[in-house]
Structures are given as structure tokens and as C-alpha cells.
Simulated assay, not measured.
Amino acid sequence: MKIANIETIPLRIPFTAGGRSDEAVWGKGGLQVVDSLVVKVTTDTGVVGWGETFGFNAVPGAKAVIDAVLAPEAIGRDAAQREKLMLDLQKKFHVFGRSGPVIHGLSAIDIALWDIAGKAAGQPVHQLLGGSDATSLRAYASLTRYSDPELVRENVARALRDGFRHLKLHEIDIECVRAARETAGDDIDITLDVNAPWSVREALDMADKLRPFNLRWLEEPVWPPEDYAGLARVRQEGRIAVAAGENASTLMDFQHLFEAKAVDFIQPSPAKMGGITELKKVYALANAYGVTVMVHSFYDGPGLLASVHANAALGGSRALVEWRYFDLEAQLYGDAITPKNGAIAVPQGPGLGLEPSADVLREYRVRA
């Protein structure tokens, strides 16, 4: 079974999020659309697999690399030899960098190849990863940044009404965090992702102010995000658990994070760091270092499904799935993967278990 074709499908889907999101997070003024890149891999036997890269402004670069660099090398290769193919392509194109569009593109292709493998075997991906009897997993609502305490209150209350008992904020203002905790009460897990804005000193000062809000973790508090020594210092002195790893790109990056003792929670992002093939290695490495894996899955397509399957097979009882708490105009999988009462279904069909809607792919595809 050989790879016969690789097609990149850029999507742009409008969303609302219970109020205007702060433009500083997503890189565009007034942004209320989600840009994503879905990748369709077809074998010479007609089996189709679906993958996804990280979206937003990263889409054009990943699409160009897949179309012009990765796809020509992958077509004709054995679809079953995922790990060999990924390693061969990493080695061949490492001169272009070990992060960014090349790794993002490989991630999407890898996820699609796992989808193909599951379909060929007649098993869901979580069974290929070691097996699971989970039919659902706990999810946390990952809110946009509002930079407005009243909007935070409204949307925390909305998430609680939807059944979530675990929340993630993206705020950098203390009053917004205070609003969330006051609204949620003491029994709700709240995590805070600040997207790497501060120096080590600033992060420590902010940790002092954030400590009363009993955060489960403080995510990526330090700029640059690869300052693992600085991150370790915030972890040691800030007295709040630290999470990071969304911006790590290779297994070596994760090893360096662990060696620096920089994190309590590690957050590999399957659509950014090599797909499921590399993600399963991070689980093994994290287990050796005694660090909890919390997969980053700020996606709505195959990248999210990859996270769900990995969590089901490898995540254990503490697994939580990140759910992007946006109200999309259209969902690739309809309501099949939308959390109910704070829990997300583990697809049981072969491969990733769900097929993207042909209508959504057609209607929201970005055409050149």
C-alpha cells in the first residue's frame, strides 16, 4: 500500500466566542475566523487518511512546504512504514530547520498515515497505540483571551453551564483571572496559558500575584519559550506548577525540558511536533522523568482526534483533552466530537474514527 497522493486543504471558518477575542493572541486585528490546514493522503489502494497542521498564520508556510517539498518525497513510499518515512524526511530536510513549517507538515502527514493504518487494520488508532476501553475522556474548555473581566465572567459561567469542570484561560491581566476564580468558585480547576510574554523576573512577580487563585498550572510564562533554565527557575521559585511544550518541535526539545526540570506538565502538540509517531515517544520519555502529559490540542480536526486517541491509550486516569471553546459556524465532524457535560467521546471506528464533512471542506475551503 503506497502513498499515491497528498492534498492540502486550507479552511477558513468564522467563529464567535462569547464576545470579541483580544486580537493580540491570534495575530490579526479583529480576527473572528479560524484558519486551519487539513491534509488528505490517498493510497494506491484507495484508502484515505486525514491529517492536520497547526493553523492560524502558520497555514501558508506549511501548505507550501507540503506541496513543494514533502509530498513529492513521500509519494510512492510505503504507507505502512510511518516511522521510517518520518525519520527519512526529517533527516533529508533538517537543513530547513527542526521547527516550523517542515515539522508542521510532517505532523499532518504522519497523523494521516496513522488514520490509514487504523483503517487498513479495521481498528481505531487508540488500539494501535496499545489499547483502551475508554469511551469518553474528561475535557477542559480552552477559552480565548478576552482582556475584559466581565466577558471572562460571562464565558466562565457559560462553560460551567455546558458541563465543564476544568477551564483554561489565556488572560494576562490579574483582574481577569480574579473574575474567573470568583465566578467558578474553589472547586473548578483553572489553568492559565499566557503565551510566553514575560521575562523570568516578570514571571516570578506575576506568580506572586497569581498564587491566591489556586491555578492548576501556569503555562508558558517565559519569553523566549525555549529558555528552559528560566522556566525551571519560575517553577522552583514561583510556587505554581508550570506547563509548557506546545512550542517544542522534536523529541530532543522535550528531553531538554525534562533535563532542566522545567515543567510539571508537558504539552506536546501532535499537529506541530511530528504527529502521533513522535507523540507516543514523548509519553514514554515523560513517564521516565515522572512528568504528566497534557496534550496540546487547540484544533478542531484530525489534530484533535489524534490527541483524543493518544490520551485514551497512553494518558491514564489524569488525561484531559483540550477543547477549543469557540462556537464555529461549521464543525468538520458535526456534533460527533463536541463535549457533552465536560466529556469528549473517544471515536470507536477504524483509524481516527470520524470522516470530515465533505460539505464543510467544500464550503469553507480557501481558494487561491
Rank of each mutant, 00 (worst) to 15 (best):
G97S: 09
F254A: 01
F326H: 14
V293Y: 00
F15N: 12
S147W: 03
E322K: 02
H104P: 03
G46I: 09
M252Y: 05
P212D: 11
E150H: 08
L87V: 11
G303M: 12
P72D: 06
H309E: 05
D264S: 11
E322R: 01
S357M: 10
W50H: 09
P268A: 02
R201A: 13
Q255R: 15
A108L: 05
V152I: 14
L285H: 03
V125R: 12
T292G: 00
P60F: 09
D264C: 08
Y140H: 14
H166R: 14
A262P: 05
V194D: 01
V125N: 14
R12D: 15
T183R: 09
Q81Y: 02
E7W: 03
L304K: 06
N287V: 00
Q255C: 04
R20K: 10
L328S: 05
P302H: 04
N155G: 09
R235G: 02
E150N: 13
A262R: 03
T292I: 12
G316K: 02
H170V: 11
G245Y: 01
H94A: 10
E7N: 00
D300W: 02
A112S: 03
R158E: 07
D264M: 07
R12Y: 07
K340D: 00
R178Y: 13
E219R: 02
P225F: 07
S36I: 01
T191K: 01
A358M: 15
L137P: 11
G29Q: 15
I13G: 10
V360P: 02
A241D: 12
N311V: 02
V263L: 12
V242P: 15
A24K: 15
T250F: 06
A180R: 09
A313F: 04
Y289V: 01
G275A: 13
G130E: 08
H166Q: 11
A120F: 14
W50C: 06
G46W: 05
A243C: 15
Q127D: 15
V95W: 09
G51I: 08
F265E: 02
G316H: 14
A68D: 15
I6R: 11
L215H: 04
A80G: 04
N57C: 06
G245T: 00
G30I: 01
K91H: 10
T277V: 05
A184I: 06
G130Q: 15
K119A: 03
G301P: 03
D264L: 01
E52R: 00
Q127K: 10
A121H: 14
G245D: 04
V360C: 11
I344E: 00
V152N: 13
V366A: 04
A207W: 04
